[in-house]
Design a protein around this nucleic acid. Structure first.
Length: 491
RNA sequence: GGGCCCGUAGCUCAGUCCGGUCAGAGCAGGCGGCUCUUAACCGCAAGAUCGGGGGUUCGAAUCCCUCCGGGCCCGCCA
C-alpha cells in the first residue's frame, strides 16, 4: 500500500483520541434513520430561521464539507437520496461537546446525526443537530470538494472514490440498474423466460471474436469464455422453451475503445414462431419504454430527454445495399466480385486482408460510407448473405439474409436475424467459415448442428449490447463510464 | 499495430516551447480568530525523491534516450 501521508496520520490520531474517550469510531449500525430527502420535505413547512424540535429525525451519510464559524458550524452530508446541511450550535451541544466534535470531524467521515428539521436564515433546509455519532472514520481524505476526481485512470481504478465524490457518476450507475431492470420486466411481460447458460465452454461460438482461454483442472481440458449467448439459447428453443432471454457477461479478447470492452454485458432474446419483422417491433417497443423509464428516473437531464425523444419515435429504416450505394455513389454492389470489392474497400481506407470474404469488404464499405450518418435510431435491413453465417436467407431478396442491425449515434446497438434453422445449411455455412484463414481458431460447434437436427422452430433472435444501451439512453460517449470496474492494466 | 497527447503536494491546477530564486497557487489537513455559512471568510505555519531509470550540461520539472501507467484518434476484431 501507499505510505501513510501526514494527512492520514492526523486522521489516525483522531481515531485514537476517539477510542481514548471510550467512543467507538467504527460502530455497528445506526437504526431509525431516514433519507435526507425526508428531512428536506419536513423543512418545506418551515420558514427561514425556524426549527421543529418536536419532531426529531435521524440521518446518516458522508460529510462532504465542513464550515466552522466559531460557535456555529455547518456541514454537508450526502446520502443516496441527496444531500443535507447539518447545523451545529453551541446552544444545542454545549461548549465542550461542540468543540470536541468540530476538532475530530473531517470531510469524508461517515456520521449519523439526530436533530430537528430547521431552515437556516438564508433558507437552506438543515438538520439542527442535537446528537452526532461517528459511524466510520475516513482515514484517506476525499478528493478536492469542488473539482472532484478528474484523473480518468483514478476514476476507473478506484471507482469507489469516483462514486463518493461524484453524484453524476452515482446517478449514471443507478440509471443503468433501472434500465436493466426495465428491460427485464419488459421481456418478462412479453412472455420471455429468463435463463442462465454457461460462461465456460469447450468452444466459444455465436460470433467472430477471439475468446479468452482457461483450463479446467478437473476435466483436464481447455475451456473458453463465451463470446456470445446465441448458441445455448437456440438449443433451448429446440427444447421447447419458445421464448427465452439471458442478460450476462460476454468476453472478447480484443482491444478496448470507446465502444468496446473486453468484458461486456449482452442481452440476447430468442422468440419461436416469429421473424425479424416481429423482432423490429419488439425492439422499438423496448427502447421506447427504456426512454420513458430513463426520463422518469432523471427528469432534469437534457441528454436523457433527447435520447428518450429519439427512441420514442419509430426507428428509421434503410436497406443495407441501397443505403450503401446511395451514400457511396457506387452502383451494382450486389453483383461485384471479390477483387472489385477489395479495391473499393481499400480505396475507402480499409486494410483488411486481401483474402477476406466478400462480406467483410461489404461490411468495411458500410462502416466507412454509411455508419457515420446513422446518428438517429435506425434499422439497417437485409445484409448480404456473405456477411452472416447464422441468419436465414431472405424470403424475397436473393443473396441476402433476413437480418437487421440497429444504430444510434453511429454505433451499433444490436443485431437480429430470422434465425437459420436448417441443420444441413448451418453445417455448410460453418464449414465455409472454417475454410477461411482463421480455421484453427474457430473449431465449430458440432453439437449445435446436432441440436438443429432435432428441429429448431422458425424463430427470431436479437443480441443487444447492454453497455451501449446504457450509453445511448444516457448520452454517455465512453463505454468505460457505464461499466463500474472497466478493465485496466495491473498497476 | 500506427499517430498524437498526458503524468508536478492527498485532490484540482500553473510552471516545460526559450535549461539558471521554477518548487508555485487553491482545496483538504495543522494552529489561531469568527454564533447563519453553503467552492464560507481572515491570519500564521507546514506539506513535493516534479511517474521510474539513464544521459547531455557548471546547472534539468524543463533538452535527449528508455521504461511504466493513462487518454484520444486511426487500424484490426463473420
Amino acid at each position: 500500500m501507499t505510505a501513510e501521508s501526514p494527512l492520514e496520520r492526523e486522521r489516525r490520531d483522531k481515531v485514537a483520541r476517539w477510542r481514548a474517550e471510550g467512543k467507538e469510531p467504527y460502530p455497528w449500525s445506526f437504526p431509525h434513520r431516514v433519507g435526507t430527502d425526508v428531512v428536506r420535505d419536513a423543512c418545506a413547512r418551515l420558514r427561514p430561521g425556524e426549527d421543529d424540535m418536536a419532531h426529531p429525525l435521524r440521518v446518516a451519510g458522508r460529510l462532504r464539507a465542513i464550515r466552522v464559524h466559531g460557535r456555529t458550524a455547518f456541514a454537508d452530508l450526502d446520502d443516496l437520496a441527496g444531500s443535507l446541511q447539518l447545523f451545529f450550535r453551541v446552544d444545542e451541544l454545549g461548549e465542550e461537546a461542540f468543540q470536541a466534535w468540530i476538532r475530530d470531524l473531517d470531510p469524508g467521515d461517515i456520521v449519523g446525526a439526530q436533530g430537528a428539521p430547521a431552515v437556516s436564515r438564508r433558507g437552506e433546509p438543515s438538520l439542527l443537530v442535537t446528537e452526532l455519532t461517528l459511524l466510520a472514520k475516513a482515514i484517506a481524505p476525499p478528493p478536492e470538494k469542488f473539482h472532484g476526481l478528474q484523473d480518468v485512470e483514478e476514476r476507473i481504478r478506484r471507482r469507489y472514490v469516483d462514486l463518493l465524490a461524484s453524484p453524476e457518476s452515482r446517478d449514471r450507475f443507478r440509471l443503468r440498474s433501472a434500465l436493466v431492470a426495465e428491460a427485464r420486466e419488459f421481456l418478462h411481460a412479453e412472455g420471455f423466460l429468463e435463463v442462465e447458460t454457461p460462461v465456460l465452454l469447450p468452444i466459444a461460438g455465436g460470433a467472430a471474436a477471439q475468446p479468452f482461454v482457461t483450463r479446467s483442472n478437473y476435466l483436464d481440458e481447455e475451456l473458453q469464455l463465451r463470446i456470445a449467448l446465441e448458441l445455448p439459447l437456440k438449443r433451448l428453443l429446440v427444447g421447447g422453451l419458445e421464448r427465452v432471454f439471458e442478460i450476462g457477461k460476454c468476453f472478447r479478447n480484443e482491444d478496448l475503445d470507446s465502444t468496446h470492452s473486453p468484458e461486456f454485458t449482452m442481452l440476447e432474446a430468442y422468440w419461436a414462431y416469429a421473424d425479424y419483422t416481429d423482432m423490429r417491433r419488439l425492439i422499438e417497443g423496448l427502447y421506447a419504454r427504456l426512454g420513458r423509464r430513463a426520463r422518469e428516473v432523471a427528469p432534469e437531464n437534457a441528454k436523457i430527454a433527447a435520447a428518450a425523444e429519439a427512441f420514442g419515435r419509430p426507428f428509421a429504416t434503410v436497406d443495407f445495399l441501397d443505403e450503401l450505394e446511395r451514400r457511396s455513389g457506387i452502383t451494382g454492389l450486389g453483383t461485384k466480385g471479390r477483387d472489385e470489392l477489395r479495391e473499393l474497400a481499400r480505396a475507402a481506407g480499409s486494410t483488411v486482408p486481401a483474402d477476406s470474404s466478400v462480406g467483410v469488404f461489404l461490411d468495411k464499405l458500410f462502416e466507412h460510407y454509411v455508419e457515420p450518418h446513422l446518428t438517429e435510431p435506425t434499422f439497417v435491413l437485409d445484409h448480404p448473405t456473405a456477411t452472416t453465417p447464422l441468419a436465414k436467407h431472405h424470403r424475397a431478396k436473393p443473396g441476402r439474409v433476413e437480418r437487421f442491425e440497429f444504430f444510434y449515434r453511429s454505433y451499433e446497438l444490436g443485431n437480429a436475424y430470422s434465425e437459420l434453422n436448417d441443420p444441413d445449411e448451418q453445417e455448410r455455412r460453418f464449414r465455409e467459415q472454417l475454410s477461411g484463414r482463421a480455421a484453427e481458431q474457430y473449431a465449430f460447434d458440432q453439437d449445435f448442428v446436432e441440436a438443429l437436427r432435432y428441429g429448431l422452430p422458425p424463430c427470431t433472435g436479437v443480441g443487444i449490447g447492454v453497455d451501449r444501451m446504457v450509453m445511448a439512453l444516457t448520452g454517455t460517449p465512453s463505454i468505460k463510464e457505464v461499466i463500474l470496474f472497466p478493465q485496466a492494466r495491473s498497476a
